[in-house]
């Protein structure tokens, strides 16, 4: 992969791969968001979005996720400087903030179910849970990935030579973050606009 073949571009293979994957992933989310929009307002029975969505709460969790992206930048910067301590600290921070976001989401889902919004109840429930759930799965994978990096860095210390591996994880993380901004706008904000 990384060694032994003549390279016709400057980009490392895995970084290129991640960009391509993200391009494809955009279509995945695009389709889910598209479905959500097509079915917006078509639910025959409640609960309807305005009745359940809680903007302040989700704003907080969105902010947490945004901050994690910021920490991601710091972590990468630290690794480039070979600052192992900060690299580990910020990486942990990203994963931690990601987990908080997930916590919010679990709470939100449970709360919605209490309010009667279920996967099978109406079209809003169906499209909402599948869209945000898919995003949640992305965040979960990201958290596991970052924690694995963290653990691995104790087994075999990471240096600036491993930068590209963190960078790739970072690309993924930023992407998941940006997608959330879109979802937050389309699903939450637009509803009250």
């Amino acid at each position: 992969m990384e060694s032994g073949h003549y390279r016709s571009t400057k980009l490392p293979d895995i970084k290129l791969m991640m960009w391509i994957f993200l391009a494809s992933d955009t279509m995945f989310f695009g389709t889910l968001i598209g479905t959500y929009l097509v079915y917006k307002g078509r639910s025959l029975v409640g609960p309807y979005p305005v009745e359940v969505l809680d903007i302040p709460l989700t704003t907080v969790s969105t902010f947490v996720l945004l901050m994690s992206s910021f920490l991601m930048v710091l972590a990468l910067h630290a690794l480039r400087q070979d600052d192992t301590f900060r690299f580990r600290l910020w990486t942990f921070g990203v994963a931690f903030f990601g987990s908080i976001f997930l916590g919010f989401q679990v709470y939100e889902f449970a709360h919605f179910v209490d309010l009667g919004l279920t996967l099978q109840g109406n079209l809003f429930g169906t499209t909402f849970f599948v869209l945000t759930g898919t995003h949640g799965v992305h965040v979960t994978i990201g958290v596991i990935w970052l924690l694995s990096i963290l653990v691995h860095s104790f087994v075999k210390p990471w240096t600036s030579k491993d930068e590209v591996y963190l960078e790739v994880a970072g690309l993924y993380w930023h992407f998941v973050d940006v997608v959330w901004i879109v979802i937050f706008t389309v699903v939450y904000l637009v509803e009250f606009a």
Partner: peptide
């Protein structure tokens, strides 16, 4: 492929978990 994959996923969800993506009676299109 992603649009197809998602569409397949939606039908799998419908058939396995009872979601409503393609249930006209629930207003789906």
């Amino acid at each position: 492929f992603p649009p197809l994959t998602i569409a397949l996923f939606q039908v799998i969800m419908d058939r396995t978990f009872g979601t409503l993506f393609y249930v006209p009676q629930a207003g789906a299109m």
